[in-house]
Design a protein around this nucleic acid. Structure first.
Lengths: 115, 115
DNA sequence: TGTTTATATAAGCATATGATTATATAATAT
DNA sequence: ATATTATATAATCATATGCTTATATAAACA
């Protein structure tokens, strides 16, 4: 009752279903602190490139993430302008940091950075 | 980061998947304020009794709800002792009250009350 | 220009999900 | 004891989901 922003049940269940997948939920948590490109996700999740692309598409289709080309890579980032961003954020804030996953990439020299 | 209780991603995604269904999410929101029996849900959701029973079973299987027999009815209630109750609660708190659904039952004389 | 690299999309497939119908169980009412 | 009422479970089925493989696209590079 005290929560800042009200989300209609229909909308909320749609968002929860999207987040109700381990891969996508981890992606979102990661994106809270790091923009990532597709190939980084492929490494992190040890999952095929199409599989990753398809998860990102679902997140993008509802506007939870944005894509932006940087050089030869396409980077994904959290869309904090999303109408229900506060709702999503409050969920992600209950999850443990996933920075370790990105750190591993760094160690392996697989982290993409193009600023 | 400021959220009280940390939920592992695996566990969180499982819970979110459960809540990522309009019927179950509404059930949980309703149960925040009213214990309900199966036949009330059947009326509220205009859904078959087995369909309702199966949704409740999923919620019960992960311990989000408890069941208790009262006379000829079996009432369901929120299990606020659930390990991740705070997490779930914080989600439900973003949703609009669903009391109207129970009020309708009352009007139709279909509200079950046995105290 | 042609090749490589990064990503997206399409088609196909196995499994998961949510509903239905039919039936079982268990308490209540007659 | 039997019938009724409330609920659960099982079997079935259509649709959704998430992955794979194959292919398209589009920028970067030689």
């Amino acid at each position: 009752m005290d929560e800042s922003k009200i989300v209609e049940v229909q909308k909320a269940s749609q968002l929860l279903k999207l987040l109700g997948d381990k891969t996508r939920l981890t992606m979102m948590k990661l994106l809270q602190t790091h923009d990532c490109c597709v190939c980084e996700f492929v490494e992190i999740f040890k999952m095929s490139q199409p599989a990753i692309s398809q998860h990102l598409r679902k997140l993008r289709d509802v506007g939870l993430v944005k894509e932006e080309r940087r050089g030869q890579w396409i980077f994904y980032s959290i869309n904090n302008k999303h109408e229900d961003y506060r709702f999503v954020e409050s969920i992600l804030n209950h999850l443990p940091e996933q920075d370790g996953l990105v750190d591993e990439l760094e160690v392996q020299g697989l982290r993409i950075s193009c600023n």
